[in-house]
Design a protein around this nucleic acid. Structure first.
Lengths: 122, 122
DNA sequence: GTCAAACTACGACGATCCTCGTACTATGGG
DNA sequence: CCCATAGTACGAGGATCGTCGTAGTTTGAC
């Protein structure tokens, strides 16, 4: 469709993701209830920009990272767009805030609190 | 210890639960990422009082319910106290709010939104 | 003491999940 | 065209989870 438009960009395909109304609370909570994915989400919230998949220094294999990114995307937490050979990831902060106000913010804030020396224990 | 204190109350033993500083974000998220437990938490948030274990009309066996209540208690989401042969459950709303401000509120609000006809889809 | 009610402990089953390695595809550069 | 880079697909192994039934425990009532 619309193949007549001259595409000057390198290539920026979007990958299937749930609409805002289709984001499930349980899916979001499950997606966030994993140390690796929580770390990814926290990183995305910090840099607040596009980050490719392999730019995360989590101690897991490449294929495992692919799995986690898909879980996050299918839950509606992140958006993935291809740019060249890379895949850029962004947090769907506004969509999440529209669906579950305050949820992502409190999770990210709580994560940061837990991973700071001198933070509230644990 | 302290067996010398005269106990006039019918009996109100508390069950082991994490201190506020020991509540883990991942454990809370995992505890909430289950339909049965989410329903229990939502019910507790609504009535805002003590509810015994078998007062929930979730379609699971009795022993399964025991399991879910333990998961919630060990994650620090609820508090359990025995009163007679029953076990009263209360939400640790203040403790949770002190540790992860806004988290429980947004989850409960989101759950209610999802389970209302005419709510935001899903 | 006897009994019923509420809950727990335990083991088992099936399902899901996280992880991995290997093989494969797609994109872009030289 | 060849190749390097980035990511995916596809199992497979191991762990965890949710569910259940049965048997056992604790408590209070009679």
């Amino acid at each position: 469709m619309t193949e007549t438009s001259p595409d000057t960009t390198p290539r920026a395909d979007a990958f299937p993701e749930p609409a805002v109304d289709e984001i499930h609370l349980e899916a979001v909570l499950h997606a966030l209830a994993d140390p690796v994915r929580l770390r990814i989400v926290s990183s995305l919230a910090e840099c607040a920009g596009e980050v490719n998949c392999l730019a995360f220094d989590v101690p897991v294999a490449k294929s495992t990272l692919t799995h986690h990114f898909r879980v996050l995307r299918e839950a509606g937490v992140i958006r993935q767009v291809r740019r060249g050979t890379s895949k850029m990831n962004t947090l769907r902060g506004e969509d999440l805030a529209a669906r579950f106000p305050g949820l992502l913010d409190s999770v990210v804030a709580g994560y940061r609190d837990c991973h700071r020396p001198g933070g509230a224990g644990a």
